[in-house]
Design a protein around this nucleic acid. Structure first.
Lengths: 138, 138
DNA sequence: TTTCATCTTGGACTCATTACAAGTTTATCA
DNA sequence: TGATAAACTTGTAATGAGTCCAAGATGAAA
């Protein structure tokens, strides 16, 4: 589980700058679908020179290289999540507003008609009430 | 298939103003996942007094009342689609940039772990290349 | 036909994201 | 090691989708 981030990034054809390493590391350690602002605020004390533009640039690069995926389950701000090759869905609780990772059986979803499309990526979102809030309500 | 939109809206607890009727009608007749700007531009010649704020207000109301769903497959602008009780997925072609409705077997996706969540809505997005573009490429 | 709640309008505003140009770092090779 | 170019980072300014708000218009009910 010890990932050498600099060499991992280089393997993906990405120059391993200090900022990029720290942003990737943050995403690995914080599987909370952070926004750009959250990532920026978490790193600015360690990297006082950090620019928000760099965070945007880096995340867009990671998305393009398919290391990270954009989570669009929320309206106004984009959220980011390390790419999981097994695939998982996202669940937004309408009560506590947390976003959960949930396992799904993505392969089962495909229909005859979809087989004519070449699918490169898929995203599944659920909205509802999470187990914790259900317990509180009862 | 002759839907009386005014009484349909009233049944959903929505006052049937002229603007709301025309916006709902537009969404029924244009299953192209339009943006607010597209809806506004389509209606402004017929309804010269129409305000963009009204389009935003109306769509947010429809989403809240679950008549319409937000399609977040694209980055910068929200898109809207009449709610389909059977559920369908959206497919974005990376080549021609069209968005397709695709049938899915949503019930098959659920896993054991997800059964602890109370799911109120689900959204499935695919990204890839559509049949037309695949044909053109070959 | 008056009353009151609701809806619509447009202009100002917010704020996430992008564009751009200048400065900094890094890789390469003599 | 030093020179050079390419790539990366930074800060500021600009863009533009979406929201807020207050005033005016509409519509239902009695």
């Amino acid at each position: 589980m010890d990932l050498n981030i600099p060499s991992f990034l280089r393997n993906q054809g990405i120059k391993a700058s200090y900022q990029r390493i720290r942003i990737y590391e943050y995403l690995m350690n914080n599987r909370t679908h952070p926004t750009v602002a959250e990532i920026y605020n978490a790193l600015i004390t360690d990297i006082p020179s950090l620019s928000k533009t760099t965070v945007y640039n880096t995340l867009n690069l990671f998305v393009e290289k398919v290391l990270v995926e954009e989570v669009t389950i929320e309206g106004s701000e984009m959220r980011y999540d390390i790419k999981d090759p097994k695939g998982h869905g996202h669940f937004k609780c309408t009560q506590c507003h947390r976003i959960f990772d949930v396992p799904i059986q993505i392969e089962k979803i495909f229909t005859e008609e979809l087989s004519e499309f070449q699918v490169q990526a898929q995203f599944v979102h659920f909205v509802g009430i999470c187990p914790d809030c259900l317990k509180k309500n009862s």
